[in-house]
């Protein structure tokens, strides 16, 4: 167990130490104290280690994460786990805008609410939000799954490609080319798997609706111009 206190140790030293870890390292448990909203905490990790961050973080915490588990015991600023490749990032509090932006793999769990543009341009990541998500979430989402136990804000899934969106609560409005789709058995199975991975045991898949692309904007047509 290693502890780094960001009130004493510079951010550079924290990330440098974490980058020096490789597969098979014995230093698999890390505690980071006093993040005080600092940006770029525990970014660019690439080893199967667990980092507990005790307190609120700023922008891009766990950005481009690979393999590692990063658990934020507090709220997270914009762009949490942006472009994550693999591993697991958990935010115990709320996450600001752009959570999981362009993420390509791994699992991002937000136990509070996520703000606007959650999962923007997501490319394969799985995101689970226990609370609500803000406007323009899953904008241009390409691939992966977004699961929301609460409500979704305006323009959900605008210009969405092939990502799957599951929402248990209300959706304020759907964005251009995003439609509700049937929950077939394979979607129930997929969703059940995602809930289990995220440690959610108190919710049934029947409570969710599925949203995805109508694929009308996939090739330009002047009669769809209002939607572009």
């Amino acid at each position: 167990m290693a502890t780094i206190d960001l009130a004493i140790t510079p951010l550079r030293a924290l990330n440098e130490n974490l980058h020096a870890l490789s597969n098979g390292t014995n230093d698999t448990e890390w505690d980071v104290l006093n993040p005080e909203g600092r940006h770029a905490v525990a970014v660019g990790l690439d080893a199967p280690v667990t980092v507990h961050v005790h307190g609120p973080v700023g922008y891009y915490c766990a950005g481009m994460n690979k393999q590692a588990s990063v658990i934020v015991h507090g709220s997270a600023g914009p762009g949490t786990a942006e472009n994550m490749m693999s591993g697991r990032v958990v935010v115990k509090g709320d996450a600001s805008q752009y959570a999981g932006a362009t993420g390509r793999g791994g699992l991002l769990v937000i136990e509070g609410n996520a703000s606007s543009r959650c999962g923007i341009s997501m490319k394969g990541i799985d995101i689970l939000v226990r609370g609500n998500i803000g406007h323009m979430s899953a904008f241009m989402a390409q691939s992966g799954n977004l699961v929301v136990l609460g409500d979704a804000g305006d323009a959900l899934g605008d210009s969405i490609y092939e990502a799957r969106l599951f929402v248990r609560g209300t959706v304020k409005s759907l964005g251009a080319d995003c439609i509700e789709k049937e929950m077939r058995p394979e979607h129930h199975a997929l969703l059940a798997d995602l809930l289990e991975k995220a440690g959610v045991t108190d919710v049934e898949t029947r409570a969710f609706r599925r949203y995805g692309s109508a694929r009308k904007l996939y090739n330009f047509d002047i009669d769809n111009a209002d939607a572009y």
Partner: peptide
């Protein structure tokens, strides 16, 4: 400015 900080941190400056 914050995005650049992230990219520098990921690539160790």
């Amino acid at each position: 400015e914050i995005k650049i900080l992230e990219l520098r941190e990921i690539t160790d400056w």
